[in-house]
Simulated scan of single mutants.
Amino acid sequence: MKAKVLVVDDAAFMRMMIKDILTKNDYEVVAEAADGQQAVDLYKEHNPDLVTLDITMPEMDGITALKEIKSIDAEAKVIMCSAMGQQAMVIDAIQAGAKDFIVKPFQAERVLEAIGKTLG
């Protein structure tokens, strides 16, 4: 059975890149969100196996969304996506329960490695 993934990024281009990597490698993208609040709502609706979550977004940032998702489902598997130079935020995210992080621009093998490790 394909793992279900929720892809969250305020940039449509970044969502498209991740979605492309995932679908080519037999993952199912069940939903996409452009901000943290949408991410939380869609998590409740779809209960995905994995979430890729951008750190910097309007409305609700990725770290706040991560904490919300973790409060709904303590077992949620979340991989944070960050731009270079966001190390402090990445540390916050890991402390808040993120399993791993990937850095933009995405490299397919790194994305797949992080997902493989996280879904283990």
Rank of each mutant, 00 (worst) to 15 (best):
E32R: 02
A31G: 15
M80Q: 00
A3R: 15
E113G: 03
K24H: 13
A108C: 04
D20K: 14
F106S: 10
A11D: 04
I63A: 05
A74L: 11
K117F: 11
E113Y: 10
Y43D: 01
A88Q: 14
K117E: 12
Q38C: 01
M57I: 02
Q38E: 15
F101I: 03
K4V: 01
Q95H: 13
I91N: 04
F13W: 03
A96L: 06
Q37D: 05
T118Q: 03
M57A: 02
R110V: 13
F101Q: 07
A39M: 09
K19R: 14
E68M: 01
L42C: 02
D9Y: 00
T56F: 02
I91G: 00
M84T: 09
A33D: 04
V90C: 11
Y27D: 13
L66V: 05
P58Q: 13
A31M: 07
V5Y: 05
K4M: 10
R15V: 07
A11R: 00
D92R: 06
K67L: 02
K70I: 12
A114R: 12
M84E: 12
A11Q: 10
L6D: 08
V90Y: 01
E75L: 10
I94R: 10
V90N: 07
I79M: 13
L53P: 05
K104D: 06
A114F: 09
E75T: 14
R110F: 06
D54Q: 04
F106T: 09
K104T: 07
F101H: 15
A88K: 14
P48D: 05
D26L: 11
R15G: 06
V40R: 03
E113Q: 14
A83S: 15
L42D: 09
K77A: 12
P105Y: 13
C81M: 15
Q95C: 07
I55T: 07
V103T: 15
